[in-house]
């Protein structure tokens, strides 16, 4: 434990590691917000908020009927507007009547896409598996979850902090001194790898935590305990609540990143040179995440893309299998790392 604490002190005392990580986290959170939001919603968000308040609550046949009735009314107004125009041109409608019909048509046109979306949602909920179905305003939740991507800046900062854990010893030539001590072989290698894992794990969890807190401050905790499957883009999650999903995803990503950083330690010990180590470590940590689409729904996804997916974990992801694989990978990386550290040339 004491050796682990010393490793932690080495990381924090050297190279302003904490500053690098903090700056990366802030940049990772702030920079995407500076970019213009190009995502187009298929409905009006203002009206969606209004209608979800109007029709919101536990989903029932009555709600579905109300929504579909409203949609039908809108569709009827839109469909009949042509004939209304014709009637006004033919002089069978007064200006007052035409104005009223035109106003109704304008409103119907504006509401159409939103009501169609709500109707689609009803159809989705009708056909979905059994869970506590509900209609509520979910645009903010969707946007928040859509923004969860691969934290490239954080990963790059982690590389700058993790690579020196072993590289520093080779660079300073202190590894000879360490290796000549009784605890300088397995215990120290184990402590270094544990420090790498926990640093990446902790940084990833902290980052997810900060993102979550920012969301709570901006939006509040409303609807976080609703089942995620109520969101049309997230089918198949059963009773898993939005909060539970986010926490699991954060844990999953932290484990993947921690495991990836163990691989980075191996790369550093193989390269024994800072620049080359950084290059290959970046490849090891990022390539699997970038090539995630090469392994759709296969064992390869679990094996090679576990180092961090570019999107939240999929509904059909077998968490037990994934964590067992991560555990096995972490154990294998640790054993390889220890052997590399202790190897005699």
């Amino acid at each position: 434990m004491s050796l682990l604490w010393d490793e932690w002190r080495k990381i924090t005392q050297h190279g302003k590691a904490m500053l690098i990580l903090s700056v990366a986290m802030i940049a990772q959170i702030v920079l995407p917000r500076l970019l213009p939001d190009l995502t187009e919603l298929p409905y009006s968000d203002t009206l969606y908020r209004k209608f979800t308040a109007e029709y919101g609550g536990a989903y029932s046949a009555e709600i579905s009927e109300n929504i579909n009735t409203h949609l039908q009314e809108i569709q009827t107004i839109c469909a009949e507007y042509g004939s209304v125009q014709q009637a006004y041109l033919a002089g069978t409608l007064t200006l007052e009547q035409f104005k009223t019909a035109t106003d109704a048509y304008g409103i119907a046109q504006a509401e159409l896409s939103t009501m169609q979306y709500l109707s689609e949602k009803c159809a989705y909920l009708d056909g979905a598996e059994d869970f506590a179905k509900s209609i509520f305003y979910d645009t903010n939740i969707k946007r928040f979850l859509d923004d969860i991507g691969y934290p490239f800046l954080l990963v790059l900062a982690l590389l700058c902090v993790i690579v020196p854990i072993f590289d520093r010893e080779y660079r300073y030539g202190i590894h000879h001194l360490i290796l000549a001590t009784p605890y300088g072989h397995i215990p120290i290698a184990l402590c270094k790898m544990m420090a790498a894992f926990f640093l990446a794990f902790g940084a990833s969890l902290l980052f997810s935590g900060i993102q979550g807190v920012i969301y709570l401050i901006q939006v509040g905790a409303e609807n976080l305990l609703q089942p995620l499957s109520n969101l049309m883009d997230y089918p198949g999650y059963g009773q898993t609540t939005v909060l539970h999903f986010y926490l699991t995803d954060a844990l999953y990503k932290a484990c993947c990143l921690g495991c990836g950083c163990l691989a980075v330690c191996i790369v550093t010990m193989l390269c024994r040179e800072t620049t080359i180590s950084l290059f290959f470590a970046a490849a090891v940590l990022m390539l699997p995440a970038l090539s995630v689409d090469l392994f759709p729904q296969t064992l390869g996804r679990y094996l090679f893309c576990g180092m961090g997916l570019t999107e939240p974990y999929p509904a059909n992801c077998n968490m037990r299998l994934l964590f067992v694989i991560l555990l096995l990978k972490a154990a294998a990386y640790t054993i390889i790392g220890i052997r590399l550290w202790c190897r005699k040339r």
Binding site: K10, H14, G173, I174, L177, A180
Partner: peptide, 12 residues
């Protein structure tokens, strides 16, 4: 053991 060029952590 004292190696030829021992380096130490500058922050310690």
């Amino acid at each position: 053991f004292l190696p030829q060029e021992p380096g130490f952590y500058p922050g310690f």
